[in-house]
Amino acid sequence: MAQITLIEAVTQALAWEMKHDPSVVVLGEDVGVNGGVFRATLGLLDKFGAERVIDTPLDETTIGGITVGLAAQGMKPVAEAQFEGFIYGMLEQIICHAARLRNRTRGRMSVPAVWRAPWGGGIRAPEHHSEANEALFTNVPGLRVVLPSSPGRAYGLLLASIRDPDPVIFFEPKRIYRQYKEEVPDDGEALPLDVCFVLRDGSDVTLVTWGAQVKETLEAADALAEEGISAEVIDVATLKPLDFDTIHESVRKTGRCVIVHEAPRTAGFGAEISARLAEHALYDLVAPVERVTGYDTHIPLFRLEMKYLPSVEKIVAAAKRTLAVS
């Protein structure tokens, strides 16, 4: 079985679903002959033709709006925003229409669409190519927000997102697009949405994260283990709707929680997890919840971006602060 990267897993999932469901179409800028600027749609044009692999005019408003129209008429469009920083031109269509068409028509119409976008910093990209803007979407009723962190979860969660009857924002952590390979059987098996994945069992502290930060968080857990500290690592994977039960169960065990994300801190999605811990798990907590996040600044241009992003050292330090309380 072939070992594939996260971006190859995205392509593999798209190809599987297009092959098995003729209503699935892919659209966006440069998704056709060029295969997408990250090559997520590589080879799809040859396999499925220009009617299903659609190079749109260079206009995010168009992509946002025709995706709603396609989905409302029974297609399953998978739209690509070339970068997460370009998705803002689609926001009105996503928020005012995709997210609420089912509700406002009492189920008469719906938008079974996926908006994919490369997401996050750390690839030395130009301005507006490094955002972590997931929290803009987690406050919108009717949406799902999904962020895979491995080739296997990219494949399984993208299949599930395309099959989901409601609109899904599917952010792909571009920093780890090609970071490593793993075996991902091309068997069409979806992974469940709306659940967190416990990537590592531990008993002393719970580390909660998503996207590319899963890498640093697992490394931080390794570093803590060397010092005899047992960290549980949770990949949230579906931010909205949130599987809080899995997080709560872990915190019941550890009494300590560090939330790691690269988005700005204030009203970042970590704030929601922290609030739910305060509401439902206050008496399980031994120490205050810690957040290791981007600062409340714009992610700097790339000379400084690694100083902005959460690092292994910052995560380890935060975990140790929670352990200093007893």
Binding site: G64, G65, T67, V68, G69, A72, P77, H97
Partner: peptide, 13 residues
């Protein structure tokens, strides 16, 4: 915004 819903519908057709 409805104009693009119509365009997307037309594309589906």
């Amino acid at each position: 915004t409805q104009c693009l819903h119509a365009a997307g519908s037309a594309l589906a057709f």
